[in-house]
Amino acid sequence: MKVPFPTQEFDPSLLRAEEALREMLAHVPALRIESINDVSALDDWKPNLVVRITVKDQTHLLICVLKPSGQPRYARGALLELRRHVARHPPGATPVFIAPYISPAVRQLCSEEHASYLDLQGNTRIAFDGVFIERIVADKPQAEQRELKSLFRPKSAQVLRAMLREPGRAWRVSELADMSGVSLGHVSNVRNGLLDREWARTSDDGLVLCAPAALLDAWRDSYTAPAGEQLRFYTPLHGSALEDAARDALRAPDASGHAAFASFSAAQWLAPYGRTGTHYFYADETGLRTLQTALKLAPAAAGENVSILVPKDPALLADTIEPALGAVCTSPVQTWLDLSIAGERGVEAADHLRQEKLPWSR
């Protein structure tokens, strides 16, 4: 039975957590639930539910903490609370972390802390006294996917690119806003997203990336080709003639627009791995016209050997480097992202680029 606490505000998430616990525990026929008590309002300690169960005439307690988010920062705090609460009970109490969604990384963290877990999507691992219940649900909830994708949308990505150019630097929010050209509020949102996932930490000097590899992996997994107009052309130029003409065009004054080698073509300058028959560029409208003239481009419905993206996000053309005179390339991070979705050869080139130019991300 449930012991009511009239002074406690009704929490629908708590009710869902209780229902999920009952459903999971029902899978063990030898287990009997004696009571599920809401103890959130008791004294100065904050477990949300205490479940008293009997297995083979032995009583056991599940001490449960429910958090509104299963992100690592919240999980770590919850596990610390649970460790403290369980220490107040005699042997036979098991800590259980509950959240709307618990990622594989946080599930691993729970295992390392010898805690059970349950989320409201159905992922569960509850283990004690010979009882073992485990269930893994493949799909992420849509809200979780939306929240993660929002961290890599164009405005947020400008902040991330600034940080990844100097991955060991400590940043003030105002510095990041100035460097990335986005609002203080947007930088603060990105900051919170990084801290929640423990991809960054705060120091006396500001915000510092502490898990750039995990950040890049998540970005890759969420990455899709930039929005914009994809144009295909044929050029009669080949080899060094094409390369020289492109470099002359790319180092032209700003009045001629902006353009850069991209994808496989950028990788040839940054970390050569393997040539392709197509040359890739990003360009704005003016840069596009400059490339059309310099490379003698003709539209091609088939048999193209030049691919130019005119991106909707102008920040992509600001995130460039010039490893050789005129060889303006998308940054190592952007080039790596583009290669990562360019098929099997692209993945191999991306791995090589990461090893050569992003050693801090391994």
Rank of each mutant, 00 (worst) to 15 (best):
N189I: 06
R191T: 10
D178F: 08
Q142G: 06
V159T: 03
K149M: 03
F152A: 03
T202R: 12
G168R: 14
Q158Y: 01
F128Y: 14
A162V: 11
G130H: 10
R165P: 01
S150H: 08
A138C: 09
R146A: 13
L194Y: 08
G130Y: 05
A200G: 11
E134V: 07
R146Q: 13
E134Q: 15
L120M: 06
L194M: 13
R107I: 02
Q108A: 12
D129P: 00
F128R: 07
D178P: 00
L118M: 13
I133F: 12
A115F: 04
A138D: 15
R191G: 09
L194A: 10
N192K: 12
D129R: 09
G181D: 12
I133P: 03
L160C: 03
K155C: 00
A162F: 04
R165A: 14
S116W: 09
F128Q: 05
S116F: 12
G193W: 00
E198K: 05
L120K: 03
Q142P: 06
D196P: 01
S156Q: 08
R146C: 04
N192V: 05
A138W: 12
S188M: 07
D129G: 03
E175D: 15
A200D: 11
F128K: 10
F128C: 09
R191Q: 15
N192R: 12
